[in-house]
Design a protein around this nucleic acid. Structure first.
Lengths: 242, 242
DNA sequence: TCAAGTTGTCTATGATAATAGACAACTTGA
DNA sequence: TCAAGTTGTCTATTATCATAGACAACTTGA
């Protein structure tokens, strides 16, 4: 097939194929990490030579949207989420700014008691009653991180139920009358994903994760919540701004 | 310059040029009937070869958006004026609805006497005194039609002078107290432009014209005026609505 | 280990895109 | 009438687009 057959549109065939695949990624037909159909299969669906498909895939790979693995297939490369670390950090706003849809999902909510570290972070006494929320955050359909959040059970009774309903920490705090809050100390380390998180993050074992410990404060500097988050390293990129 | 130089976009250069010119037509930078810049000038503005510009213009000409005239230039082809044929037909309203400026121009006004056909159309006796008005109508600066209009000289004395002043048949009738009127029988045929009309319509000899004979009636059904109009076929399109 | 399926690379061919130059044919205005 | 400017047409060259076939290199699952 030559460009004449497409009514001589002035647009190269490989570009049409590339646009089609990109649309498939954008609208979720091909999710991040998914394996695309084989080059031969794509060639057949678009009625085009395999080399033309390769040209299209090369263009997408150039932009980092897909990644070819010899002998295995071509995979949708999850674009890294640019995650600015500022005093005011809202997951939903960050994801939305990237043109993606933020989602939160409750995994588990339970009661807990403050260890010495948790007590210090939250300004409570050791053994104070806490609510522990295990949640996962996604951009579009791609898991970005799982985080464990602790709140004082006395200040935020039934916080687990509220989070399950709102799916947003910001809205949870609003529910208890917290109009605004800001990020306190943030510590970042790295590690290897464990089996539990791997399953939750849809990630193979052995992959690196970014571990973030942070405490959010109200405007008076009083601790509200403290979190222990594990980000998929290959899906996120922290931006530290001056 | 080759396609590589445009970051290998997969879109042919001539297509980009064609799209640019088309946008210029769409947003009014180039009005209908306007002469486009010369091929060389376009080539310089887009930094492409003249032949690439010619390819772009050929694509636009294929779609009827422009028309090249050897030795003169390339012109924006006036889109055909959609001319609905209803019982209430006002040239100025039809042209205005298309976003173009209607104009009328008196060519000649003279006295005449009713032939048998004119007498029948106007409900007068053969030989009755008439006013004959020769006028041309334009949309923007493009001639659309020339029409010969006959009115009773007794009912509309000095009609020629009034039309020269008002340049509108509707206003002429208003001047004589006719508040409203409607279209009676309309007959449409086609023919070839004669030398006189060709000059008036700025049209080469041999081009087809639409010939419309119509009589306008007042609200009681009494004939007011009868017309013999010659429309430039390539500039107008009659719409017959149920 | 092996077969099937995948991506990577090579050669080859024809059509199209884009460039370049030259000249013909025509229009316009001085 | 003439010069300048316009579009039309021709040849020619280079690069890209698209196709086709063959085989290598690799992964995966049986």
């Amino acid at each position: 097939m030559s460009m004449q057959d497409t009514a001589s549109s002035g647009v190269a065939l490989w570009r049409l194929v590339a646009d089609g695949i990109e649309r498939g990624i954008a609208d979720g037909r091909f999710a991040a990490g998914d394996k695309l159909p084989g080059e031969m299969e794509i060639a057949e669906t678009y009625r085009v030579n395999r080399h033309t498909v390769r040209r299209a895939l090369a263009a997408l790979a150039e932009r980092g949207l897909v990644r070819a693995e010899r002998g295995s297939g071509t995979y949708v490369e999850a674009q890294k989420l640019a995650y600015p670390l500022r005093s005011r950090t809202r997951f939903s706003e960050i994801v939305g700014a990237g043109g993606r849809e933020p989602r939160g999902q409750l995994i588990e909510a339970s009661e807990d008691v403050a260890t010495r570290e948790l007590a210090r972070e939250l300004g409570l006494k050791i053994g104070a009653p806490l609510v522990r929320i295990e949640a996962i955050r996604l951009a579009d359909r791609t898991p970005i991180c799982v985080s464990t959040t602790w709140l004082s059970a006395e200040l935020f009774p039934n916080a687990g139920v509220v989070f399950a309903a709102t799916r947003s920490m910001t809205k949870l705090l609003e529910h208890y009358g917290v109009r605004d809050y800001r990020r306190g100390a943030t510590r970042i380390t790295a590690g290897i994903v464990d089996a539990t998180d791997a399953a939750r993050l849809d990630l193979p074992l052995g992959r690196p994760i970014l571990v973030v410990d942070a405490t959010d404060l109200d405007l008076d500097g009083k601790p509200l919540v403290t979190k222990h988050s594990r980000f998929v390293a290959e899906r996120v990129e922290f931006l530290v701004e001056p």
